[in-house]
Structures are given as C-alpha cells and as structure tokens.
C-alpha cells in the first residue's frame, strides 16, 4: 500500500481527508485493540491531520495516542455506567 502523504490529503476534501486517514489508521489500531478499534479511530480523527500523518509514520507516536484514547474512552464509559446506576 502506498504511504499516505500530505500532498495526497491536500488534493482531497476535508471530509475525504479524514476518511483516508481513518482507513489507514483503523487496521493499525485494530491490531492493538480489536474490539475498540472503530471508537478509537473515531476519537483520533478529531486530531489535526498533520499529527495523524505523523502517527501513521511513527509506531511509537500512534501507540501513545491510542493508549491515551483508550483511557479517555474507558473513563467516559465508566461515567455513563455510574450515571445509569444512579
């Protein structure tokens, strides 16, 4: 697969840019967290495209952001569960 570049992104519409980034990020995230991959990818797509490109190039950077996103997601879900219990 051809690596995604900034110039490739620049040629696309904003909505398409996120789609392209998501398609590249998803399989990498799925390797780390198979059941949460869709949600984590959705969260990470809120980040700037330039940083997302960097994450695609740097395993270390991607890994740390994914772990950050998982922590936020779990805290969010725990809060929801607590609220439902009353």
């Amino acid at each position: 697969q051809v690596p995604l570049t900034a110039s490739m992104l620049a040629a696309a519409l904003p909505q398409e840019q996120k789609q392209m980034l998501g398609e590249r990020l998803y399989p990498l995230i799925q390797d780390m967290h198979p059941t949460l991959a869709g949600k984590i990818t959705g969260m990470l797509l809120e980040i700037d495209n330039s940083e997302l490109l960097h994450m695609l190039e740097s395993q270390e950077s991607l890994h740390s952001k994914v772990e950050e996103a998982v922590a936020v997601l779990q805290a969010h879900q725990a809060k929801d569960t607590a609220q439902k219990k009353g």
Binding site: K18, Y26, K39
Partner: peptide
C-alpha cells in the same frame, strides 16, 4: 447539562463514509 453523550465517540467503520465530523468548513 452534564455533558454526557453515550453516542460519543463516533465509530469509524472501514469502507463506509466517515460521518463523525459534520461541521468541517469546506
């Protein structure tokens, strides 16, 4: 408002159009 939103975050599904960001300026 407590800011809670059980639908957050939007889920990305490969092969489907991404609709998570509806408010991007063209």
């Amino acid at each position: 408002s407590n800011g809670s939103n059980i639908n957050w975050p939007p889920e990305f599904r490969p092969g489907e159009p991404w609709k998570g960001l509806q408010n991007i300026d063209p």
